[in-house]
Simulated scan of single mutants.
Amino acid sequence: MDGYKGVRKLEVKDFMIRDVITVKKETTIRELLKVLAHHRIGGVPVVDAEGKLLGMISDGDVIRFLQPKARTVYDFYITIVVNEQEDFNEKLVHSLDFPVEKIMKRRELYTVRPEDDFENALRILVKHHFKKLPVVNQAGRVVGVISRGDIMRQITDKLLNS
């Protein structure tokens, strides 16, 4: 009850997606790309057999892995389409069978808990330019994810339906 009488403080669980799509560290980049495309998402938590967070992997991580020299989308396009199509195709075919463990983000992983203050999650997303933030329980198991897109949809739905 902060600020407004009778108004409950917003918590992460009010905005998080509970049906979390995850992958294991052994998942290949090929399988990851299929998951991302099928679910129309940009990244997922990487978990162990018990559902504990090991890392995060995004479409951006895959792009940076495949084309580390590219600095912008334009550079990436020019490198692939104009300059090095054959080299890229060879690297792509070879790299698709690598496990996501090779390129997943392990350091500086930020998480929130379902009962955490929603504003804290927003601060983390904004400060670090994250698109997704895993939500973990006391045991470290992924129980949700909160993303900028989901937050915007929730806010829009609440504003338009009030």
Rank of each mutant, 00 (worst) to 15 (best):
P99K: 07
F88Y: 14
E115S: 09
E50T: 07
V46R: 01
S162R: 11
A121L: 02
Q67A: 15
D150L: 10
L66I: 13
H39R: 04
Y74N: 05
L53Y: 06
F65Y: 13
K105C: 00
I155Y: 13
I155R: 08
I41H: 08
I124K: 05
K102A: 13
E31Y: 02
L10S: 12
R141T: 10
N83M: 08
D87H: 09
K127C: 02
K102F: 14
L33H: 10
R71L: 09
V142K: 06
N161R: 15
I29Y: 10
K91S: 13
G60Y: 09
S147Q: 07
I124M: 07
V93Q: 12
D59N: 08
D87L: 08
R71D: 01
V12T: 01
M16G: 02
R107G: 11
L54F: 00
L133C: 00
R8A: 13
R18F: 01
I17M: 12
G144P: 06
V112G: 03
S95W: 11
D19A: 10
F15G: 01
H129V: 00
F65W: 11
Q138K: 12
G42M: 08
V93I: 14
K34M: 08
R148P: 04
V20R: 04
V93P: 00
A37T: 15
K69M: 13
V82G: 03
K158A: 15
G144D: 14
M16L: 02
T79C: 14
F88W: 02
V142Y: 05
L36C: 02
I63M: 14
Y74Q: 09
R113V: 02
V46T: 08
K69E: 15
R113F: 07
D97N: 14
M104D: 01
R30Q: 15
E50I: 01
H129Y: 09
K9H: 02
K9S: 06
L109N: 03
F65T: 09
G60S: 11
L66T: 06
N137S: 06
L32R: 15
P45G: 04
N120P: 00
V142I: 10
F15R: 04
L53H: 03
D117F: 02
R18I: 09
G55N: 01
L125K: 06
S95T: 10
D48K: 09
A121Y: 05
D116G: 04
R141H: 11
F130N: 03
S58K: 03
T111Q: 02
D19V: 07
D59Y: 01
F130H: 08
P134R: 03
Y77I: 15
V62L: 03
K132N: 13
L54S: 02
G60P: 00
K102L: 14
G42T: 10
M56R: 00
G6K: 05
L159K: 10
P68E: 01
K9G: 00
T111I: 04
I80W: 04
G43D: 12
K13Q: 10
Y74W: 08
R30M: 12
E50K: 13
V73R: 04
Y77A: 14
D75G: 10
G42F: 10
H39Y: 14
T72S: 14
Q85S: 12
K69T: 10
I124T: 08
F65H: 12
L10A: 15
A49P: 05
G42K: 07
V145I: 14
A37M: 04
R30D: 14
M56P: 06
Q154P: 00
E26S: 15
R64K: 15
R71S: 09
G43E: 08
V81H: 13
G3Y: 08
V23D: 03
Y77W: 15
G140S: 07
